[in-house]
């Protein structure tokens, strides 16, 4: 019975995810078609062994005479480690900021005060706006003559300077995604019974001490799940940098994430792009695996516990 009910979902997911991933892995071991260096003839590829992976990981390119050389600057291959660094930098900074600010949002929303409904409604607004629109909105705010520079009387090149463009993306992402983080943390906060806080208050614990010794340990499972989701989401970041800075800034790739690099590569050669997208997928998978193993986050169980809690 259960098998019949679940089969359509699994089959459909196998078609839309399983098929592409298997194809991508097979293709990643094929050469991209191009001109054969020795004969000058057009060749349609062939088995490439791991050369596509070496191209990205070890920055190996073919020169005109068919020898393996280090990729020259400007070649997409030489941008791999830069893109990896940028992706992880964005992930660490945005997730850290969103966790701290999101926790603060959640704590405020968990208190009873007049206007709480307004706060809860307001934080849904950034979440509901499509990332593409968010990117355009901040592109305008961060334009040279835009409101950000006008407000701070500055002349920062928010979309072309190396670090300014990175921070522009971090600010925009934090604005857009903190509400989502706050809602997940709030769900965890609401499970803490009021009596626990009352007991702390009677014992004369300070606000900070209450937070560190009671709130934090009790919301840890919810917090860990929220952080895990955010990390996996940030590692595949594409829309915001693609639209806000075009992956540019600085010498031209200050905000190029791995996803942007894959998209740039698609039109330059499927098979090499497949290798890069497989690498990206593996990086995300490994990060998730480490996170779950090291921190012992059980996503499914935490969520189940949360639902039982809200039901009670």
């Amino acid at each position: 019975m259960a098998a019949y009910l679940i089969a359509p979902t699994i089959v459909l997911l196998a078609i839309v995810i399983g098929y592409p991933i298997v194809t991508a892995i097979i293709q990643s071991f094929q050469k991209d078609p191009g001109l054969d260096a020795a004969t000058g003839q057009f060749v349609s590829g062939g088995f490439a062994a791991v050369s596509n992976y070496a191209h990205w990981l070890l920055q190996q390119c073919m020169n005109a005479s068919g020898n393996t050389i280090a990729c020259p600057p400007g070649n997409l291959g030489s941008g791999f480690w830069n893109a990896t660094g940028v992706t992880f930098f964005f992930t660490v900074v945005t997730v850290a900021l969103e966790t701290v600010i999101g926790t603060w949002f959640a704590i405020i929303m968990n208190r009873t005060f007049r206007g709480r409904a307004l706060v809860r409604a307001a934080i849904l607004v950034p979440w509901a706006i499509p990332t593409a629109v968010t990117a355009k909105l901040w592109y305008f705010i961060f334009s040279v003559a835009g409101i950000a520079n006008a407000l701070f009387q500055s002349h920062i090149l928010w979309t072309s300077d190396t670090w300014a463009s990175r921070f522009a993306i971090i600010i925009a992402d934090t604005w857009k995604t903190t509400p989502f983080m706050a809602l997940l943390i709030l769900a965890g906060l609401q499970l803490i019974p009021e009596e626990v806080y009352e007991a702390a208050r009677v014992d004369g614990a300070s606000t900070w001490r209450t937070f560190v010794t009671i709130t934090l340990p009790l919301i840890k499972p919810a917090l860990m799940v929220a952080i895990l989701f955010r990390i996996l989401d940030a590692l595949r970041m594409y829309d915001l940098p693609a639209i806000l800075t075009g992956g540019g800034g600085g010498s031209g790739n200050a905000t190029t994430t791995l996803s942007i690099l894959v998209v740039k590569q698609i039109r330059a050669g499927y098979n090499s792009a497949s290798a890069l997208s497989t690498i990206t997928f593996l990086i995300i998978f490994i990060v998730a695996f480490i996170f779950v193993r090291v921190l012992g986050t059980n996503v499914v169980r935490t969520q189940e516990a949360q639902q039982k809690g809200t039901k009670a």
């Binding site: 839309v16 098929y19 991933i21 293709q27 998209v263 698609i266 499927y270 997208s277 497989t278």
Partner: peptide, 8 residues
């Protein structure tokens, strides 16, 4: 990740 889908 969506990029792993679009290439194939």
């Amino acid at each position: 990740p969506g990029v792993a889908l679009i290439t194939p």
